[in-house]
Design a protein around this nucleic acid. Sequence first.
DNA 1: CGTCTGGTTGATCTAGATCAACAGGAGTGG
DNA 2: CCACTCCTGTTGATCTAGATCAACCAGACG
Lengths: 241, 241
Amino acid sequence: MTRAGRPIPTLSCKQCPIHLEGEWCVLSDDELETVTAAKRDRLFEPGEVIFHQGDACDGMYWIRDGLVGERRLDPDGEMALVRLSHTGKALGYQELLARKPYRNSAEALKPTRVCYLSRAVIRDLLDGNSRLGDLFLLRSLRDMEMTEDDYVTALNRGIRSRLLHALLTLYKHYGHFEIDKGHVLEIPIARKDLAALIGTGPETISRTIRKLEKERIARFEGRQVVFSCIDTIQAEIRSTG
Amino acid sequence: MTRAGRPIPTLSCKQCPIHLEGEWCVLSDDELETVTAAKRDRLFEPGEVIFHQGDACDGMYWIRDGLVGERRLDPDGEMALVRLSHTGKALGYQELLARKPYRNSAEALKPTRVCYLSRAVIRDLLDGNSRLGDLFLLRSLRDMEMTEDDYVTALNRGIRSRLLHALLTLYKHYGHFEIDKGHVLEIPIARKDLAALIGTGPETISRTIRKLEKERIARFEGRQVVFSCIDTIQAEIRSTG
DNA sequence: CGTCTGGTTGATCTAGATCAACAGGAGTGG
DNA sequence: CCACTCCTGTTGATCTAGATCAACCAGACG
């Protein structure tokens, strides 16, 4: 958890693959120019904090690439990893729009490039383009759907099931298929973060992993996992566990 | 879980206390008239289902008064109570705006009067009044905040702490203070629902309650609770548990 | 009167937390 | 180069919160 992020050259929005989806697609060329001119691009190394829980929110961030974890520190010092965010996700937009301080801290877990937009710019864009608000609404609804799903999962699934779920989600983002090995995933986060994401400690993660190995469900080697049969895992996740 | 809700006479929006807050306050008198004319008021008795998880969403509901529980059935038959909703809360607006089927079932837990508005009416209102969308956005952000809080609580707090939290929340809505008795709450839901809300079974609720009694933190008698010292409970909730 | 549902208790079992030790890098400084 | 520490991950031993299964009781209701 070191300091700020290093400024990097601004990428023109029109050259950015993200501008075709989400909020950006409703912006006119002029508006995109405005954004390009106003935004500040930054690079955060793993461990660097993008913003801190409790801090006033003066703008929002888009993830160009990389991986960000949102952490929540509760009063007695427990640190939960609320969610992982990837390319295209927005950070801090909820607090910005609700005019509240950040609920969570955002920390880069891999080298991450973000675009920063100040509150004033966002306000102007919202005032100028009424459809933009609708898209923020849709984003919020989608995010809500995900955390609600995670919530019910946390309520009535065991650690094992939640771990499998997390791994599968990671696989969708970072995994790939090799003919000779199978479904391979290089886990992008440390064991203790995997634990914090699920709501347990690193020891339990270790043990659960060894169980999965014994049952030939997956093979672990350091941060690399090879899944024997994705379908089996899918099936297990949606039944009792 | 019986059938539909009984139609009841429509309450004019201008006479409804809710119209002063939330989405309603930006509507013109004309628009309020439109809503009054278009909406259908219904009464649901405890146990009656307002809508079912998985059903297509063709409108949304406002709670005039009463208590509604949103239930989520997961594939292996576990039923979680995702949240409780009181007067002034909107039901199904997320699914309506995102054009998705209902994620949860909504069931009246006390006699509940709701106002129903069809998708078409909402669409017209949204098209006619651009500020309305902003308010739905704010509502979504607030709801998100709550479930995110519940989520982190579920991740790293024990049953006892979550129970206290739930009871305290209920107290804020349904509790009252009596000089001779103290802080009194008539718990508006059954034990098994209290359990489903927290993510456990009724047995554990029973036992946890008895522990609380032994420690003189609260006295339970049927559905009535008397809290000895609210502050102590507040303190315990925000420290380890 | 039997039946049903909601709540409580008891006995038992286990998933998972907790505490503690240790092993393998990776960096750092002599 | 070695010696040192720091950090991450793994394992072992133990303890406990909570799940599970089963019995039981009281009130509601036909």
